[in-house]
Design a protein around this nucleic acid. Structure first.
Lengths: 340, 340
DNA sequence: CCCCATACTGGAAGCGCTTGCACTCAGGAC
DNA sequence: GTCCTGAGTGCAAGCGCTTCCAGTATGGGG
């Protein structure tokens, strides 16, 4: 293993100068730097991260805490974070907080405290008070994506507004009896997005002087099968007059489309379905959705927090992210509605 | 930040003894250890990973190299690895090798060489000769999941056999004209699984004295939309007599089921479809599949390589993983076939 | 011509652990 | 009672970098 000293000797300078030349901190003459760079390349030198970290306190490592990896939102955000971190020269250490509370506790009380990361991004995790405290105690920048925290900075879409937009799209098309499939408390207990989205739906109706019909609210776990079962139940009820359905995630919306097909209900002729996410499968199902640009949420958060780290800051700004209605073919004018 | 010395002072022993007590290496009397543990807990001491790594050469960190995170196989394997690593007290550092060759090169030539990880698991990546060399040069254990390497140890299913099993299931049901949807060279160029699976399909037919009909081979990229389009084309051809379809992944199989539905082809009455994977969505589509236990591939590989690390070994054993036929309702006896 | 920034560079002191070595002290074998 | 063994402990030397500080040129200003 070639070390800093090897490079220093080979280049005929001191270790200090090599360090300065390679890290770019401090002054080194152009010619000396050039020679050091050349020698380092020849010797194929790569600095030991442990030594460098110990001496400098900088880890060049970004921690990411996630509750799961299967659902589209999570792995998409992670991809965004990873790409951004890599291009900034940072490693990413993944802490997959499973359902096991022991493990979860352990991650906050031990893993994170080894000071292996310069910053951490928390994805869609509702943190307990104790967990927020632990995070703050780390003394490093933290940013939350798609979750909420009273005291930690976050990068997020406005879940209420995004759902209101989805519902408003249906209302604009003349639909008056809308159903909704969202989360239930029994799923995702530590994740507030579901209730926000539900609230957005209600608000959209309220704004038009309509009222939410509790019978048309389905509950599911944000997955395709979940949406399928919830939709089948909703669509199976006779005489509801429902012509539009808002799903709080694209996966549930896709499940709903599948359920409609199974029941012989045509989309969009008989039922308009709109989702939220911008899931990559949306295209296949011609799903109208509100794209929340998940990958860019990841890269934005990473960029933000890495900038904070590099600038020696500790508290990045909060940031509201954009979303766009993406109209495809799963939504259409309500039957009998007046032309828009 | 409380340090080892703080604990040592508070416990009235030397730093060396604290280190031994906390790490479990070397002899410490039961009473001394108990006191140290108590003091450490009180002071809320957590060792600095950088210092510990620098001094010991151990990182307690497992590197994972993956080409993507979206597809089910990858995030499922990653979940398995992460769970296992966490419970062994290891962090996992994720290297998401994107399509960009620059980035890929950088990961092998710089990121991995910082010696931040004790071992690395490579997931479904066909490595170039140079990359294998770089990996070996790291001097740490490496294991490959779902890829192939002449010289690096791997944990994998037999892709040929798993596909043969899927096809044999259809043949056993009396189907004689089978289609296949697999990978194409233009997708996944650096990933040999597709060709292995194709070969397994051919072999199953050959064993029964049948021949692969090139017209019934569809090409796709292992995703649902890919499978959908390939199947639509296959199923749209008139007069093929095809009654069974093998897809090289569950996602493609699901796409095929959707395509069949769209074309008014009933599954399984008119067409039996079998996939490979054990994808979580399989249940919703009643998909018969061969489960390759992806999550346990991840945990098995992690367990294997961490054991190798802890034992000071360098080269874990190769390991062949099991798979099971999981019969659901997407496959049935061929129309007019004799009772089995 | 002298003085003093300014630009470079090297020396050396850590960063916070781990571990080889030396030492003490018992207890068991003779 | 003597010798040996091994458990238990502390000392101190690193691990391979970073960075503060001091020292040496160099060049411009006065």
């Amino acid at each position: 293993m070639t070390s800093l000293d090897d490079v220093a000797k080979a280049a005929g300078v001191s270790a200090a100068t090599v360090s300065r030349a390679l890290s770019g901190r401090g002054n080194v003459s152009t010619s000396t730097r050039a020679k050091i760079l050349k020698v380092a390349a020849e010797l194929d030198y790569v600095a030991s991260s442990a030594a460098s970290s110990l001496a400098s306190g900088r880890m060049r490592n970004l921690g990411v805490i996630m509750p799961e990896l299967h659902r589209w939102f999570f792995n998409t955000v992670l991809t965004g974070i990873s790409d951004e971190a890599t291009s900034a020269g940072y490693d990413v250490t993944l802490y997959n907080v499973t359902g096991d509370p022991e493990v979860r506790r352990e991650i906050f009380s031990a893993f994170l405290r080894r000071r292996r990361v310069d910053a951490v991004v928390v994805v869609a995790l509702e943190l307990s008070e104790w967990e927020e405290l632990e995070l703050k105690r780390l003394g490093i920048p933290v940013v939350i994506i798609g979750g909420t925290s009273g005291t930690l900075p976050g990068v997020a879409i406005d879940d209420l507004a995004i759902t209101e937009l989805a519902a408003a799209h249906l209302l604009d098309l003349g639909h008056e009896v809308l159903g909704f499939i969202g989360g239930a408390e029994r799923f995702d207990a530590d994740y507030k997005v579901p209730s926000q989205r539900r609230e957005g739906f209600d608000q959209a109706l309220r704004r038009r002087g309509l009222q939410t019909d509790p019978a048309l609210i389905g509950e599911a776990d944000f997955t395709i099968p979940g949406g399928f079962h919830a939709a089948r139940q909703l669509l199976g009820m006779p005489g509801t007059g429902m012509t539009g359905l808002v799903a709080a995630s694209d996966e549930m919306a896709i499940g709903a489309v599948l359920a409609a097909r199974e029941l012989g209900i045509r989309v969009p002729e008989d039922l308009s379905v709109v989702g939220i996410d911008g899931h990559e499968l949306g295209g296949l199902f011609e799903l109208t959705t509100v794209d929340q640009h998940a990958q860019s949420q990841g890269s934005t958060a990473a960029k933000l927090i890495l900038a904070t780290v590099e600038s020696g800051g500790t508290h990045p700004e909060n940031m509201d992210l954009s979303f766009d209605l993406l109209v495809r073919r799963s939504t259409a004018k309500a039957p009998g509605a007046l032309p828009v």
